[in-house]
Every structure is written in C-alpha cells, then in structure tokens.
Design a binder for these strands. Structure first.
Lengths: 229, 229
DNA sequence: ACAAATTTAGACACTCTTGTCTAAATCGTC
DNA sequence: GACGATTTAGACAAGAGTGTCTAAATTTGT
C-alpha cells in the first residue's frame, strides 16, 4: 500500500534512470536484431540491469517494444517540430536558407540515432503492429507534412515561390532533398555529412527551378552565368 | 554415383518445381516474419512440402535465405531493365510519356510482389548481410540508375530537356515520382493504382517545370492541349 | 542507522526451433 | 510392373529464449 504521496514522483530517482536505460538499450537491440531476434538477456546486459528488472518495469517483451516505439516517436516528433520552427519565413537567400533547413532536418531528425531507429522499426515491424504504426503515421507524417506545407504556402503567399498545391510541394521537397540518400536509408545506414549536403543542394536547386520565381530575377547569382544555352 | 548423364537436366521436372515452390514460400515467410522469426515448418507447410525436403534442397536456413535474395534480385533486375527499355526516346507528348514510364516502373518493378519483397528484405536484413546486399546495391541501383540517367541524357541531347547532370536528374526523377508513396513504402504496403498515378503525375509535372524546355508561356497545364506533333 | 522498496543472481519449467535420422510411401522412367 | 531416386511423416537430441520464482544484496528516504 503506497499512501504517503510524495510531492512529485513516486519511484526514487534511480528507478526512472533504469527505466530510461532499459528503453534505450532495448531500442538498440530491437533495431539491430528485429523483434523476434532480440534477446531480453542481451538487452539487460546492455542496459547494465538484471533481467528481472526489465520484467518488473515492462512486464513483457511486447509491451517493452511498444514502449520503445512510443518513446522514439515522441522524441522524433519533438525534434522535427523544433526544426520546422527554423523554416525560413523571411528568406534572405532563399536557396541557401532552404538548403540549411533541409540539412538540419536530415541531421537532427532523420539521420540521428532516434530517427534512424524509428525508421528501422517502422520498416521491419510495421506490418506486425498495424495499430501502433497507424498511430505513428498520424502523429508523424500526418502532422509534420502539413506543418511543412504551411510554411511553403506562406513563402508562396509572400511571393517567393509559385506553388499550386503546398501539400504536394512539401512532399516533393522532401523527395528531392533525399533523392540521393534513398539506398543508404534503405540499408539502414547513415549518410555522411557531405552526402546530406550534396543531396540537399541538388534537391533545393531543382525545387527552385520548378517553383522559384520565374525568370532569373534574384534566384541565383551563378544561374545567369550558366544560362547560355 | 551419378554417371549416366542425361541429355539436359538431371533432376526430374518435379524436382525443380519443388525448389521454386520452396523459394517462393520462403520469400513470403521471410518477408512477413523476418529472418529470425521465420519458421522452417511454416515455410514447408506453405510450400506444400515436407521439412526434410527443404533441407535436402538448401541445407540450411541461412543458405535458403541467400537463395531467396538472389532469386528476387535477379527477377527484379530483369523487370527493371525490361521497363527501362520502354523509356520514351522520341517523345510525342513528353509529359504523358514520362508519366507512363513512371507508372510502369512502379507497377511492374517496385510495387509488384518481387519488388515489395526484395525491398522488405533489404530493409530488415540489410545490416546483417552486408556483403549480400552490397552485391544488390551494385547490381540494382548501381546499374539501373545509370541506365535511366543515360535515357535522360539522350532526351537532353535531343533538345527535349535541359539537364546539367543526368545522374542527378535521374535520381531526382525517381524521388519526385515516388514522393507521395514514401510512407506506404516504409510500412511495407502497396499503394493503390490511383495513388501511383497521382504521385507520378505530380512528380513528372514538377520535373518538367524544372527541366522541361523553357518556353514559359505555355508551360504546364495548357501544354497537353497545345501539343499535336 | 533503520525500514521499505527495489534490484539482483540464479535456478527453474516450459515452449519453440533447428537440424538429423529412419523407415515407409510416392514419383518418374524404363 | 519394376527399379532407383525423391519425398514424406514422425521421432529425436540439442540448444535457445521467455517468463516466474526465491532469497539475498543493494539502494532509498527518513
């Protein structure tokens, strides 16, 4: 019976620390081995914790897995929205600003540990836990894509871009900016920093050729030099 | 001792039929359950074959897996090159022709059974079999992407497109054309036919806005109405 | 330092899976 | 129909993994 309600949290500090450590190690192992291949003893060893403690905290391999996914989804979403907040609303150099945004999105949200792990889990176990990842789809792309689309709509409204459908433009922006990273993503790897920059640069240039203000105008200094044909 | 060499093949017809059936079912189960989760008994049952027969043919769960991947890679590659052969070299209506090509590529190579399975296996087991999937990377994207790039280079040479780097353009074409199918691919699903068409249409329109001939006057919508050559 | 809660190590039962083995049944071919 | 090769069903040993239990050790708050 736990009646003497503590001011803030109930379990001692070390308790929550262990919980975190467990979820962290579980993420690593689940991603490396898959759900079926993951071994509770291995997770326990990697977390520096006894197997029984894992069962005390999460009760079950499956519930541990669900906790891992929820945890990753939450952290990734937070990162993505934080990055969306840096979207250039009043662009000085639109090309450079969009490239910067794309690189930040990749480095801080998609290629970092959480993003990589979440992507892997979605790919490998997505079909086994339809309801769990349907939730991700709603909370993840379902919320972030419209948010990015809204930023593009704002740029269009401000006269910096010519866009008919901001939702389509947003998805195409992401497609273009990651166009050269697809195979790496597929194989579960992390692209090097220069690869991310290269793909983002090429992607943004093409994006602006399609949606940037018509004519050379102020689109790019080098463009005027290049347009000779 | 097998000395009386038969004219053509040694094992009877039924033999090879069983081998095919086994690899087929193994592909299904490996994709659904992952390597660790896949169950030889289940594969045997699905193939309508006894477990021992699987061991007779492939000897080992791991070697069975490798056989499955090689089989899928081979078939997918064949399909992709067959589709690349239909790339529009002398376009009548470039937009319609490119959309058609993109849809064929998706329907016949990426979204069909083999493509879906291979993608899933690369995603889930890519890190566990680096050498196996390095081979795929070379034989797959390493050969198909340049082939597509060559086709775009030809279009540019013929004056139908304005492209600096055909390799970049090819990757971006694929990125654009699949921009709206990413989440579905990630979750291992197959997009509906109309989704494929929609994504391809939007993608090709943007692609042509970026790389199409710069007669800005009648660039996008009215273009199809004007072209009669 | 004390008392309560938490963690730990190890043993344990249980299930599942792989891969082997054997004898019987089936298949293909002559 | 007969023969050789293949397939089959089932039993089997060996190993691995999950989840439970217990008693001892450790940590935490007071």
């Amino acid at each position: 019976m736990k009646l003497h309600v503590s001011p803030d949290i109930f379990p001692p500090r070390g308790h929550e620390a262990k919980r975190l450590s467990i979820v962290d190690s579980a993420a690593t192992v689940f991603c490396r081995e898959g759900f079926a291949g993951a071994n509770i003893d291995l997770i326990a060893a990697e977390a520096g914790v006894s197997r029984q403690t894992i069962y005390n905290h999460h009760g079950d391999k499956e519930r541990l897995f669900v906790a891992v996914v929820r945890d990753l989804t939450e952290r990734c979403n937070a990162g993505i929205f934080a990055t969306i907040a840096t979207f250039p609303d009043q662009p000085g150099d639109l090309e450079a600003d969009l490239i910067g945004f794309a690189v930040r999105l990749n480095q801080n949200c998609i290629c970092n540990r959480d993003g990589k792990f979440l992507r892997k889990l979605i790919q490998t176990e997505g079909e086994r836990y339809p309801e769990l990842f349907a939730e991700w789809r709603e909370q993840g792309p379902g919320r972030t894509w419209p948010a990015i689309a809204a930023r593009f709509a704002r740029l269009a409204y401000g006269g910096h871009l010519t866009i008919e459908d901001p939702d389509v433009a947003a998805r195409q922006f992401l497609g273009l900016v990651n166009a050269e990273l697809q195979t790496t993503f597929m194989l579960g790897g992390s692209p090097r920093e220069d690869e991310v920059l290269q793909s983002a640069t090429n992607g943004v240039r093409t994006f602006l050729r399609a949606f940037g203000k018509r004519r050379s105008a102020a689109s790019s200094e080098k463009q005027s030099a290049l347009t000779s044909a």
